[in-house]
Amino acid sequence: MEPRTSVIEKRLKNIKRIIAVASGKGGVGKSLVASSLALHLAHKGFKVGLLDLDLYGPSSHIILGVKKEFPTEEKGIIPPMVHGISFMSIVYFTEEKPSPFRGVDISNIILELLAITQWGSLDFLIIDMPPGIGDETLDVIRYMKKSEFLVVTTPSKVAMGAVSKLLTILIELKKPVLGVIENMTMKDASFIEEEAKKLKVGYLGKIHFDEALEEAIGNADRLAKTQVMEDLTKILRKVNL
């Protein structure tokens, strides 16, 4: 008998809201939005956790500049505090080596992380999701019942093709969708907004392509001053975040 599922609810009991930053497509900026959202909420004085569930290609730690931190052991593991965020990632255990996991391993890792991580009380737990609707998405839906989804896409028809599939399944499963964020826009187009409307999902707005962003990666203070953060802050106001 699998014992870990029995304790997950208790571990998440004192977390007021869980927001999964997701997309059907890779490379659209989920980790950037998740990390920036966590920073934004921490700056507003909320108690915030960030869980990077992109187990093959974790990148939130690169964006936030996490280097030497490691969880402490206390009746489980307590995530270290990074820029005011309780930050948990597989990277503490993989040391930046390649991670050749199969589906069953992914589910086992998620179960283990959820069973042993002691988040304490949080206003928000932000999850940086991997792309697609595979094990990670299904496990978040299964084990983190109060999760809400913030969906990211780029202005590309190709990206939105995959994102529409994620939105469709979230709607089918009656999961709350906060809305769609259009990232890396370079011109004024309404394609994504129209697609969101067709699916009856809120369109939250655009984050403009920011040439200066790369220089802010790894530096949370600089990240907070980017055009990306300015655009994201406007978008988040629409959903009271």
Binding site: P3, T5, E73, G76, A115, I116
Partner: peptide, 15 residues
């Protein structure tokens, strides 16, 4: 003591 978290899962599942 990460064993504590696993022990808790065993007891809760047994209960």
């Amino acid at each position: 003591m990460h064993e504590w978290a696993l022990a808790e899962s065993i007891v809760m599942a047994a209960v």
